[in-house]
Write a protein that binds this DNA or RNA. Structure first.
Length: 284
DNA sequence: TCCTCCCTGTTC
DNA sequence: GAACAGGGAGGA
């Protein structure tokens, strides 16, 4: 399930494969994988991929401005991809046929003339692609309301995000409008590292606890990025490689096992509708 | 603010 | 053959 570190890893591995390539065609194989606000993917034809980036859990292909003759119709400057749980982006040789879960195909022409294709595969079909103009992004609630990047925020701003929120700490961390890119894995891992009970009200944290939580969150995210993310079931980077951070989990997926800190059994409960593992002894 | 639904493969 | 995994939309 790609969260911030996994999407960051996909961006880093995909960049050398697609940067400076020109999109020579694009096709949607499953209509529901195209966001309703998206321009038709045909609008991407002829556009050059200037860079690959990330915002929260969104993978972004930044498109260079069109050169030459004026376009007919609006020109997208970005292709955004949300991988959700099972989305994958990988390039293949030109004539590779789509797989059973291929949702979109992007044909690419590299500067050296090499032809290849980028597949968006997504088993559970929760993922989305969206070809966007700046105007479309502003009309997209999810984009417009997306919270700040956790690795770019300071202690003061983080404390302000939690202020006045009566919801459980974990629910607040998962809320993309509060802070972007955190999913179930990194919420549980950072709450354990900070020694905080996931059910606690976010607003009840002391300034010291708030600082501690941000430090834990940033440390967990950075350590995971350094290990190319976590591969639980489906996640692969753009080279098809798995991450290694799943070997460093303290709590995620370890319900009933011994706490790495105190040895007592970890408890598995549901918070905000999500499976949640924590140590009742170490997390208060 | 919380619950249900979407979707499919895996596990019990 | 049911339970489960889970991000986000939409509704209660």
């Amino acid at each position: 399930m790609p969260e911030l570190p996994e999407v960051e890893t996909v961006a880093r591995t995909l960049r050398p494969q697609v940067q400076e390539c020109v999109l020579s065609g694009a096709e949607v194989l499953r209509a529901s994988s195209l966001h309703p606000l998206s321009l038709p993917l045909a609008a991407l034809t002829g556009r050059r991929i200037a860079d690959v980036g990330r915002r929260g859990k969104l993978l972004l292909l930044h498109l260079a401005p069109p050169d030459g003759a004026p376009e007919s119709g609006p020109a997208p400057d970005m292709l955004a991809v949300h991988l959700r749980m099972t989305g994958r982006l990988m390039t293949w040789p030109r004539s590779t046929p789509p797989g059973p879960h291929t949702r979109c195909i992007f044909d690419l022409r590299a500067p050296d003339g090499d032809a290849r294709r980028l597949f968006f595969d997504d088993t559970r079909a929760f993922g989305l692609v969206l070809a966007a103009t700046p105007e479309i992004r502003q009309a997209w609630d999810f984009w417009r309301e997306l919270g700040p990047e956790p690795l770019e925020i300071g202690a003061r701003a983080f404390a302000a995000l939690l202020k006045g929120r009566g919801a459980a700490l974990k629910a607040v961390l998962l809320d993309q409008k509060v802070i972007a890119g955190i999913g179930n894995i990194y919420a549980d891992e950072s709450l354990f590292q900070a020694g905080l009970d996931p059910r606690r009200k976010a607003a009840g944290l002391s300034p010291a606890q708030s600082r501690c939580l941000l430090a834990a969150l940033q440390d967990v995210l950075r350590r995971s990025i350094a290990q190319c993310g976590s591969s639980i079931r489906d996640y692969r980077d753009a080279n098809g490689d798995v991450g290694a951070f799943q070997n460093s989990f303290a709590v995620y997926g370890r319900g009933g096992a011994a706490c790495v800190r105190c040895g007592r059994p970890l408890e598995k409960i549901r918070v905000a509708g999500r499976a949640t593992v924590f140590c009742p002894h170490c997390q208060k």
